[in-house]
Structure formats: C-alpha cells, structure tokens
Write a protein that binds this DNA or RNA. Structure first.
Lengths: 228, 228
DNA sequence: CTGATTTAGAACTCGACCGTCCAGTACTGA
DNA sequence: TCAGTACTGGACGGTCGAGTTCTAAATCAG
C-alpha cells in the first residue's frame, strides 16, 4: 500500500511510466480512490489524500487542477477498469441445449463483477454526485450496464438467427435478462451497503432468472427442465 | 423521539397541529427537505434551512437535536409518504384473462410512484448516505421495493390458488416481476438524474414485462397474445 | 394583564478545508 | 557531476459551517 519513497530507479511493474512524477501521480490516484470511495467527494479532503499518498499537497495540485478534476480522473480510471472486467466475450452455444448454460454463465459473470464491493461503492459514489458531475453518470452507465446489455443483445441476436431462440427485439430481451439477474441484488446492495449471496443462492437465483427468460424466448417451452 | 420541551398547547400529530411551534416545525421540515434533496446531507447547511424556513437557527436547534436528527426526521417523513402512495391494494382478477391487465395496472402504479422526481432524489440521497445512516437505507427499502414486492407476492399467491397462474414461489416471482418492470427505468434514473418515458413507451415496456412474466408463470403459453 | 416561554438576530468559538506561496531539499537526465 | 526540475513542509488567506450563547422582543396561557 504505502509505496513510500523506495524504488529509486525504474520500477517498470507494468506498462506504466516509471518516472518519479508518474509514480507519485499513481500514488495520488490510488489514495484519492480509497478516500473518495470511503467518504464521498465532499467528505474527502485533499490534505488527507496528500498525506495518504505520502506526497505534499502542492504535488497534488501540480498534477490535478482541482479537487473536482482529481475526482473525475479517479472515477474515469475506475470506470475503465470495471468496463474491461465485464468481458463481453461470450462463447456461443453449439446446440439449443447449451443456451441455458450460456445464459447462466453470463449472469454469473455479471453478478461477480457488479457485486465487487469496490464497484458497488463506485456506483453509490457516482449516483450521489450525478448533479455535480453528470458526465460521470453517463460514463458509468454506458461502461457498465449499457455495455453488458449491448453485448448480450448481440449474442441473443446471433442465437436467435441460429434458431435457438425466438425473439423480436434483442435489446429488449437483453435488458430484461439483465435486470432479472441484477435488479434485486444490486438494489439491495445500494440500500444495505453489501449483499451476501452464497454460491448456492446465487446459482438458484440465476437458474430462476434463466428459467423465466427461456420460458418467454426459448424455442421450446421444454426449457423449464433447467430449474434447480 | 424529539419530545423537546414544547407541547405548551396541543400538538396532536394527527391532522394539522396549529400551534406556532408546530407551524414553524413544519416549515423547517419542508425547507430541510428541499435543501437536503438538492445538496445532500453535507452540502446543505442548517443556516440555509433556517433562512428558507423564515426561522432563526436557534429555533431549528430547539426542534431538532442536531443536523443529523433533522436529516433523519426529514427522510422518515418522506419515506412514510412514499410508502403510503405505493397502494398495495390490488383488485383481484375475476378470470384468467384479466390477469394480464391486473399486472399491467400494478406495473403502471409502480412506475408512476417510483419515477416521481422527488422520490428519485430521495432514493439517491439515501443511497449516498447509507454509511452514515444505515437505518434509513433499511427503512426506505422496506417501505418501498420490499413492501411492493411483498404485496404483489400475496396477490400472486391468491391468483395461483385460483388456478390463474402456475408458480412455486410467489416471492421469487414477485421479485422478478418487480425488477422486470423497474430495473431499467430506475437504474437509468439513478445515473442520468431523470427519465422521460412517454405514455406509449411506458405501455410498451409494461406489456413486454407482463409478456415475459406470463410466458413463465401463466397457466397457458397462449398468454403471449398480449404483445404490443 | 401578567408572567413564562419562545423566537429573532447576531456575535462568537472552533474547526475544516481549498488553493496558494515560498524557501529549502531531493531527485533526474544528460 | 551539475544544472534544472520536481517535491517537501509548513504556513497562510479566505471561506464556510456546526453548534452555542446572549439580549431584546414577540407570543401565548390563565
């Protein structure tokens, strides 16, 4: 955590620049992330960010024009990470029987990403600052739910073309699946701070969601056999 | 809670207590509501509440122990209003054919309540202060989604007993219906600040939601005829 | 009318925090 | 090695807000 002042020379851990300036910039972003998530935009102080990053306040203001700019930078960075994790890659089923499994897998990935505590706190943070930073709301929606839904819609269209599903509007169906799976868990998390979902509960929830979805859009109503 | 030292006259909470104290108390709550919704807990100042209520700061502190107590009082009052509006009254359908219409009606009521701008802002406010006031999160969930889902579950069970539906777990089905209807609109509203849903769009959305629901739980798969 | 309570209004304490400035120090790159 | 740059650490101005306290005036009960 406390990178401190070691690593005098190069520390090319990743593709990140290794200068002193860049290193401190990363430390600032990291500290700011923790503090903003923890206390919100107004609650976090630049002073504290500086201390936690083991950096002087002046350095913070050299890197970022203002507290607001720092906030935007932090959220943008996190949104990027989150988006990447969504992994819209989806292996297409070979047979109709595999559709249920593919949907279960997709749902599982969705839940596992969105219920990560850090991302839940990010969501809360962005929601609460929608008035002050409207562009962040848009960015997070498009990088999160929007992207997941669009990806699923594309997949559903392919599967429908192959005759595995019967649907008119892939976007509508994808949206429905998405909220069938995420609606309850996400909203509980928003109001309670977290959710504990055992593996078994999660599987059951997913199976029920997939069951409803396939009852509506599956080529045959026999898809119900998937209940757990 | 705030028994305070008033009650010189009578302040029966029932209708509209008319004492000077009670009148000012209402003015304070009203002003605080507007300001908290607008600027959040940290962003709103007691000073401004007092000014807006045309009242001195001292009067505010005579009525409410602290800023936090005032906040809790405001949110509790609003949560109460919102809860009452949900109107879990639901006319049971007489025939199976009326089930779709009943669900449409329920969905419409849900959307019309939850998308009221004031309640959306309340939701954002409570979500953002979940750390500081966890009890408010619980209260709002239970008074809002929780109550709506429980009410619907009870109705679904009745309809199922009459043979209009086929379902194992009314709570699960009610939860699914709830988020099928509200998931997308509510989450868009959270990130974008508001949603504009024309009457036609809303009807279409509701019909699609009911269609999926009945495909899964309707006694006959013929319920698809409901598509718009 | 009288006495008690409440309120206005402003001053005040105390603290937090943004953003800036400066003089001295550590680091970096050639 | 050495000049130039980045960084430190502390202090500072300015603003703002929570909560308290005091006095004079308004209000209300009996």
């Amino acid at each position: 955590m406390e990178r401190s002042t070691v690593a005098t020379t190069h520390d090319g851990d990743a593709g990140e620049p290794a200068g002193r300036t860049a290193r401190k910039r990363r430390a600032i972003l990291q500290a700011a992330e923790a503090l903003f998530l923890d206390r919100g935009f107004v609650g976090a102080s630049v002073e504290e960010v500086a201390v936690r990053a083991a950096v002087s306040k002046q350095t913070v203001y050299k890197q970022f024009e203002s507290k607001a700019a720092l906030f935007v930078a932090v959220v943008r960075a996190m949104t990027g990470e989150g988006s990447d994790r969504v992994q819209v890659e989806m292996r297409d089923p070979e047979t109709e029987a595999e559709v249920a499994g593919a949907l279960m897998g997709h749902g599982e990935r969705l839940l596992n990403v969105v219920l990560v505590p850090k991302l839940l706190r990010l969501r809360r943070l962005v929601i609460s600052e929608t008035d002050r930073f409207p562009e962040l709301g848009r960015a997070l929606y498009e990088g999160g739910p929007g992207r997941a839904i669009a990806g699923l819609a594309a997949a559903l269209r392919r599967w429908s073309d192959r005759g595995f599903l019967t649907l008119d509007d892939p976007m509508v169906a994808a949206t429905q699946f998405n909220w069938l799976v995420m609606g309850d868990p996400v909203n509980r998390a928003m109001f309670f701070g977290s959710v504990h979902l055992s593996a078994a509960e999660q599987q059951q929830h997913l199976a029920q969601s997939v069951g409803v979805f396939l009852a509506a859009y599956g080529r045959r109503s026999a898809a119900d056999g998937e209940r757990v």
